[in-house]
Design a protein around this nucleic acid. Structure first.
Length: 303
DNA sequence: TACCAGGTAAAAA
DNA sequence: TTTTTACATGGT
């Protein structure tokens, strides 16, 4: 079998993404949320398993046609699988136009949405990983959570071309609790993750069905799992599924940015967050994402 | 050193 | 029913 050692080979497929879309900006935004220095460059690399095979996916702008995006993988994979994953991650089908029309009525927001024109959130490939992210990020800082997660990934995951693939549920379901704890997880969180993994492996839970549920049903489904409260449910909905209207109003970071850009500069209460975002249905979550991105990318520009 | 960080479940009141 | 508490790590 012939394999190229890079992903810029001939077999790239072109992606269909609803415009406006700014791939480079979206990439910068997503990287700005990483507590550790992340990969640079203008391409997105994703390591995952496709049909059980460790695969490295690369998404980049086509050199010739500006604005055109393409995806390829090593080893070469079924093009419909590749397209499905890449367009899912890029949130290709999201139309930003109605959101922009909604925010122009507020001059403070117009500045931000114009600066961030074409910004879309990126979704993680794996909802299992997203769920583990939610658990690790409960209460402790993003940095601490990131360090803990890195230990889990390097202990239980696998890598392809120096990109780590998050461990499959099967692996974490079989991991001794003490091994999970030794990565820095609390007893409680280690149990939540273990139980989640076991439920998936045993077929009692399929996180992918969340994709076909409406917001309320998906939230309810997540909250019925041990370890997932209201915050985690909305966090998964807005980050893992990029549901444009979902937002964890208790979230410390969101309370801060809502206070910063829509309030008096002080951290807002949960109630204030709910009030300030109310006029922006059905895009409250997307707006919160824009505020967080603005805060990360342009920290000096306040007011 | 103490306290806060993109919370939750279980116990106590 | 509502309030309090234990929990883990990392940065300031």
């Amino acid at each position: 079998m012939l394999q190229k050692n890079n992903t810029s080979g001939d077999k790239a497929i072109s992606l269909h993404v609803v415009n406006p879309y700014d791939f480079a900006l979206s990439l910068r935004a997503i990287r700005s949320f990483q507590p550790a220095p992340s990969e640079q460059g203008d391409r997105l690399r994703l390591a995952t398993r496709i049909a059980g095979i460790p695969t490295l996916i690369e998404v980049s702008q086509s050199p010739g046609a500006k604005g055109k995006l393409r995806a390829s993988s090593v080893p070469e994979s079924n093009s419909s699988h590749l397209r499905r994953i890449a367009e899912w991650v890029l949130f290709a089908e999201l139309d930003l136009a109605p959101f922009c029309r909604l925010t122009v009525r507020d001059p403070r927001l117009t500045t931000i949405t114009q600066k961030l024109r074409g910004l879309k959130p990126m979704r993680p490939v794996s909802l299992f990983e997203m769920a583990v992210v939610a658990i690790t990020e409960q209460q402790i800082s993003l940095t601490a959570a990131y360090r803990i997660r890195s230990r889990v990934i390097q202990r239980f995951g696998e890598s392809i071309d120096s990109q780590w693939i998050f461990p499959e549920p099967r692996i974490l379901a079989n991991a001794p609790l003490d091994d999970l704890r030794s990565c820095g997880l609390s007893q409680q969180k280690a149990q939540y993750i273990h139980e989640l993994a076991c439920n998936i492996v045993d077929g009692r839970l399929d996180l992918d069905i969340l994709k076909s549920m409406d917001d309320d049903k998906a939230r309810e489904t997540i909250m019925n799992l041990r370890g997932f409260g209201r915050w985690s449910a909305d966090y998964i909905l807005v980050r893992g599924l990029a549901r444009p209207d979902c937002v964890p109003i208790d979230d410390i970071a969101i309370r801060s940015v809502v206070g910063e850009y829509l309030g008096n500069g002080q951290r807002a209460s949960s109630l204030e967050v709910a009030e300030k975002l109310e006029p922006f249905r059905p895009y409250r979550g997307l707006l919160a994402f824009y505020l967080l991105a603005e805060h990360r990318l342009n920290p000096a520009a306040i007011g």
